[in-house]
Design a protein around this nucleic acid. Sequence first.
DNA 1: TTTTGAGTTGTTCGA
DNA 2: GTCGAACAACTCAAA
Length: 461
Amino acid sequence: MQALRRPVERHPLPLMKIAIHWFRCDLRLSDNTALRAAVTASEVVVPIFIFDPKILKAPEISAPQVAFMIECLRSLEKNIEAAGGRLIFRHGPVLQEMRAVLQETGAHALYFNRDYEPYARERDEAVEKLALSLGIEVHTHKDSVIHEAQEVLKADGGSYGVFTPYSRAWRTLAKPSVVPAVQFSRPARWKDPAGLALPSAKELGFACGISLPPAGERAARDRLRKFAAIDLLTYAKGRDFPARDATSRLSPHLRLGTLSPRTVVATAEKVGGEHLATKASIDVFVNELIWRDFYRQILWHHPHVSTACFRPQYDRLQWENNEKLFAAWCEGRTGYPLIDAGMRQLNTTGWMHNRVRMVVATFLTKDLRISWQWGERYFMQKLIDADLASNNGGWQWSAGTGTDAQPWFRIFNPSSQAQKFDPEGHYIRQFVPEADTFTYTAPIVDHARQRIKTLAFYRGL
DNA sequence: TTTTGAGTTGTTCGA
DNA sequence: GTCGAACAACTCAAA
């Protein structure tokens, strides 16, 4: 509202072509397609970031992710300053803030990278319409995925619902190449009359309460370099053992865009070219990035998955949804050490090892018979890497409600999973130090009994 | 149109 | 202790 009351100023750089780059989930200067295009085509680029109250007030927002994002923005602001520009912050309804910025700068073009979530699609469409109505060009770019939903299609033009054939088609396509980092034209910086400084998470109303991993573009590249030098080489085996912590840990960076998937794949494949023996591991790792694109295209072609089962007949499943059992699961006091370790890792660090995510998800749906949607929301609220497409896809896979779902009779046994993947109990003891003492809580359900009940439950559908 | 082969990550049971 | 079969049927993808 404030922005609307402000008189529209004549822009200070009247003879220059000014473009706006709207940062969202692409908080980096290197290998950023829309930003690179903006800088290449325009004399002056004004980078902006808008805090959207619609997103910040959503019930499934993750406080740790907001805190992490603030740190990424702090780093981005510095990097932009060093590259000769100035990052503008706005806070308010997106259409209102965008209109104000477009008019106050006198921009001729707006650039941003495409986002595939239902809310973002609607928002971006409205922004595009607004800009066009003001006579401003709009350029949107592919950036956060390797291949977009419309690029990986079956011979009949339809979209894939099964991962393996999707991944085969994905791999036959030429990958987009990495684009160079940008510089801004220093003498032509636009000064924002609103002059909002980067707020803290607390000022936005979020109490994070956990210590965050290193944020920002530099930290992301460091993480990638370290992973590619060591754990990537044995990824196929090593990634399954939570105590070894040999996964890439890149998910928060890919989510906020401090790292691009192009850079990640290019780095991994370069390692593959140098160490032939690790080819299997490179393939398994690249598969994880293909899963990321796969779930984005599922969300794009079937946006209803964000509020319902992929397959409508599964909406009829009668979950028990016992609040007390749910609370015990959330807080990591189910009496099953691997489950409790995973949930406590999530609560105290904002992250959970992938194998353990599958085990706790199966436990919630198959042992406690609680709707996958309760678990989905809890993960979204706690994860630093919280991501609608991947999280939803993972939960529907675990619950067996999606197209490419786990067979319904495939139920993890939390004890044998612990035996298999944490044989010495290092991971469990790290988060549940009382696990092998008599003070540890008794199991809240009997796995063997629940398994039999759940098999009947799904068979009945 | 019809047919055929295949599908991320498991568990349990009995020989 | 090890190994293969059963779990049970269904949908998708491609020929």
